[in-house]
Design a binder for these strands. Structure first.
Lengths: 140, 140
DNA sequence: TATGGTTGTAACAACAAAGGTTACAACTAT
DNA sequence: ATAGTTGTAACCTTTGTTGTTACAACCATA
């Protein structure tokens, strides 16, 4: 099982906006061309990024723009904008309370799962859009 | 998007084996009772744990047993036994090479994704089955 | 050697999520 | 008024998860 490509697409979208918003109108069609996925999917993801307060979108005339400096947008922000699940892990729901393990597994595992998820989120929190943009520019 | 419950089920299975293998025959039916899922699903997951060298399963007579001390089985071992995907993240496949971002995004993001995944795996590597078993016993 | 409790696996089915597509009303600078 | 755009609804296909029945193969034991 993998995270959906919404996360990498959303990151790609934000990189494109950060890169091009000064010189051109960044529409869903423009983004569709760079990312190579259907413009409707772009618009949906763009909607999530907009709900999360990262981008603004110009009605009618079209075009998306950053609402925050790239330095203040982290991979965690992006991830949370497009992946709505609270927990990474799906716990089997009805362990048998008459079994000593079934009765205790939730209280044992819940904390571990939280620790694991936090480790991942902390790593994401340390990577900003501006870092990615700088790296991309170096490699062009 | 969440990981399948195979991971928590597999952990539950191993805890049950570690807890009960001395006193009773741990069959898929026995496990099914504690975990409260279909025995066939148990048998499939048990098969993955067996392929990964963590448990042995007695043909004909039935019953599963640990092949390693609980101290040497980590949550990462369990996770890898039941989740076969190499990467946690699904990357959109065909970014446009004619766009400067499309051309570079893979080389920029691949390393970040690896870092994030490693952070998670390192955390999993530090939690052993014996730790979970001790905690469970305390809470009984 | 026949039995009975197991395992391993095939073959389904139901359901949900991801990803894609077409279509179109609503919006707005020009 | 027009033309380009957004937001969204309504589909579709594919894949993965979870659950189920069925049954051949296995093996300790009576």
């Amino acid at each position: 099982m993998q995270f959906s490509s919404r996360f990498t697409i959303a990151t790609h979208i934000l990189l494109c906006i950060a890169m091009f918003e000064k010189e051109t109108k960044v529409t869903s069609n423009f983004l569709s061309g760079s990312i190579n996925v259907n413009p409707v999917i772009i618009r949906n993801i763009l909607g999530s990024l907009s709900s999360a307060g990262m981008v603004g979108i110009k009605q009618g005339i079209g075009g998306a723009y950053l609402l925050k400096p790239a330095k203040e947008i982290t991979l965690l922000d992006i991830f949370k904008a497009v992946e709505k699940e609270e927990s990474l892990f799906h716990f089997h729901e009805n362990p048998n309370p008459e079994c000593p393990i079934g009765r205790t597994i939730h209280s044992v595992m819940d904390g571990k799962i939280e620790t694991i998820q936090s480790a991942m989120e902390n790593e994401m929190k340390d990577i900003t859009l501006s870092m990615l943009l700088e790296e991309a520019k170096e490699k062009m």
